[in-house]
Simulated scan of single mutants.
Amino acid sequence: MKTLLTALTSGGKQVVLTRQWSLVNLREWRKNETFHCPQCKEQVLLKVGDIVIPHFAHQKQTTCRDSFSEGESPTHLLGKIQLYELFSRLQLPTEMEPYLPDIRQRPDLLVTWRNEQVPIEFQCSTIPIARILERNAGYDTVNMTPIWIVLTPQKVQDSSVFVLTHRFTQFQQHFIRHIHSHTKEALSVFITYNPLKQQFHYLSHFIHLRGTAFVVCHSVMRSAHQTIPFAIPATPSIKDIEELTRQYQSARRKYLRSVIGYNQRGIHHRFLRACYELRVQPIQLPAWIGVPTFGQAAFTESDSEWQLLLIAAIRHTRNTPFQLNRSILHSFVKTFEGESSRQLEACQSYVDFLKERRIDIYRLDQFMGKDFVLEILSGRFLAMHAKN
């Protein structure tokens, strides 16, 4: 059955079911009033139970072509109501479930901010990625940039720490916002909302570990404290950056210790073969191989792996980072899956790091100060927020 939170009365007045309506008043009201779908104008039922959130529902045999979502969960309905109340409290013109005829789409909310209409989508369930891309493309044709808010994952809800490791599913990765700063690196933010506790959970300042795993900053904001546009997470404190560094280095050590024991391909594995040819054990890699430089998330592999392979490729040409021909980088990224343009940027950033530190890539025993990863991350985040 089609569910919605907006309807028209018999007199044509729009009704939005927020929490200001008591169950008693709604039950009394429906005795003397009829309600109609804002789109197809067919009569809808006002459903008022003791457990389920009050809502309007189409009849099962509706002819409404552009009807509302099928069977929205109570969590989704509650979240939409709370977000509507939030924007209304901030005195922003807000429409609940408006139909956009030019693109035949209906966002959960449409908020007008600084003369711009911003669709808000509260996503509680996993849907095909193709549908997300299709909806984004539709908004783009009418010059709208949607903000997607995802239901807070249970692991994040249960966590009270400020720095945590999170594996982002392919689905979740499509909702990461990239807020551009004056630097070449954008601030990545994953906004989630928990209607039961009326809390926003932010995951930000992503540092890629391996595959879909990232170490991130985790902050919580009560709905009552939210602002528009959505608050940008603050710069991590020195203590937070130290914890980000510790978790990054811990993941690096764990990967290097496990790569032999868990790999059945042995010397046929590119990383292990490179270690063999360079006469170095994985766990003995110098600290300057496996560092969180700009753009590292372009590779799904561990930083230790792709950076060692890049060192091996440069050494094979008998050049140094100062003599590097960019064609070498183009040939290198072709051997990896992923977006080559982003991978080229990551490689160039790592080469720049090697040059700045004046690292001799032919000496794998070259010493590095123990705090240089902390320095990298501190500079990275401070620069990102300097003029944001």
Rank of each mutant, 00 (worst) to 15 (best):
residue 199 Q to V: 09
residue 199 Q to L: 08
residue 200 F to G: 01
residue 201 H to T: 04
residue 201 H to M: 07
residue 202 Y to C: 01
residue 204 S to R: 05
residue 204 S to E: 07
residue 205 H to P: 03
residue 206 F to S: 03
residue 206 F to Y: 07
residue 207 I to D: 00
residue 208 H to I: 04
residue 208 H to V: 01
residue 209 L to W: 02
residue 210 R to D: 06
residue 210 R to G: 06
residue 210 R to C: 12
residue 214 F to P: 02
residue 216 V to S: 00
residue 216 V to Y: 00
residue 217 C to G: 06
residue 218 H to I: 00
residue 219 S to N: 09
residue 219 S to R: 06
residue 219 S to A: 10
residue 220 V to Y: 00
residue 222 R to M: 09
residue 222 R to E: 11
residue 222 R to C: 08
residue 222 R to P: 04
residue 223 S to D: 05
residue 223 S to L: 15
residue 223 S to F: 01
residue 224 A to M: 10
residue 226 Q to T: 07
residue 226 Q to C: 05
residue 228 I to A: 08
residue 228 I to Q: 05
residue 228 I to R: 01
residue 229 P to D: 00
residue 229 P to M: 01
residue 230 F to R: 02
residue 230 F to Q: 01
residue 230 F to I: 03
residue 230 F to V: 00
residue 231 A to R: 04
residue 231 A to M: 03
residue 231 A to D: 04
residue 232 I to Y: 01
residue 234 A to M: 01
residue 235 T to R: 08
residue 235 T to M: 14
residue 236 P to F: 03
residue 236 P to I: 02
residue 237 S to C: 05
residue 237 S to Q: 07
residue 238 I to P: 11
residue 238 I to N: 14
residue 238 I to G: 09
residue 239 K to D: 06
residue 239 K to R: 08
residue 240 D to P: 03
residue 240 D to T: 15
residue 241 I to N: 02
residue 242 E to I: 10
residue 242 E to K: 15
residue 243 E to W: 04
residue 243 E to P: 04
residue 246 R to N: 10
residue 247 Q to I: 06
residue 248 Y to D: 04
residue 248 Y to L: 09
residue 250 S to D: 08
residue 250 S to G: 08
residue 251 A to P: 02
residue 253 R to Q: 14
residue 253 R to D: 05
residue 253 R to F: 04
residue 253 R to V: 11
residue 253 R to C: 08
residue 254 K to D: 14
residue 254 K to E: 13
residue 255 Y to C: 10
residue 256 L to Y: 06
residue 256 L to W: 05
residue 257 R to M: 06
residue 260 I to V: 15
residue 260 I to D: 05
residue 261 G to A: 15
residue 261 G to C: 13
residue 261 G to W: 10
residue 261 G to R: 15
residue 261 G to F: 13
residue 263 N to Y: 09
residue 265 R to N: 13
residue 265 R to W: 09
residue 266 G to P: 11
residue 267 I to R: 15
residue 268 H to M: 15
residue 269 H to Q: 15
residue 269 H to I: 07
residue 270 R to M: 04
residue 272 L to G: 14
residue 272 L to H: 11
residue 272 L to M: 14
residue 273 R to D: 15
residue 273 R to H: 15
residue 274 A to C: 13
residue 274 A to I: 10
residue 275 C to Q: 08
residue 277 E to S: 14
residue 277 E to C: 15
residue 277 E to A: 15
residue 278 L to I: 08
residue 281 Q to G: 06
residue 281 Q to F: 05
residue 284 Q to W: 04
residue 285 L to V: 04
residue 285 L to Q: 02
residue 285 L to N: 01
residue 286 P to V: 12
residue 288 W to H: 12
residue 289 I to Y: 01
residue 289 I to C: 07
residue 289 I to D: 03
residue 290 G to I: 03
residue 291 V to I: 12
residue 291 V to G: 03
residue 292 P to A: 03
residue 292 P to C: 06
residue 293 T to S: 12
residue 294 F to N: 12
residue 294 F to V: 05
residue 297 A to Q: 13
residue 297 A to R: 11
residue 297 A to I: 05
residue 298 A to I: 09
residue 298 A to F: 06
residue 299 F to P: 03
residue 299 F to V: 05
residue 299 F to H: 05
residue 300 T to E: 08
residue 300 T to A: 11
residue 300 T to Y: 09
residue 301 E to L: 13
residue 302 S to G: 04
residue 303 D to V: 12
residue 304 S to G: 10
residue 305 E to R: 13
residue 306 W to G: 07
residue 307 Q to L: 08
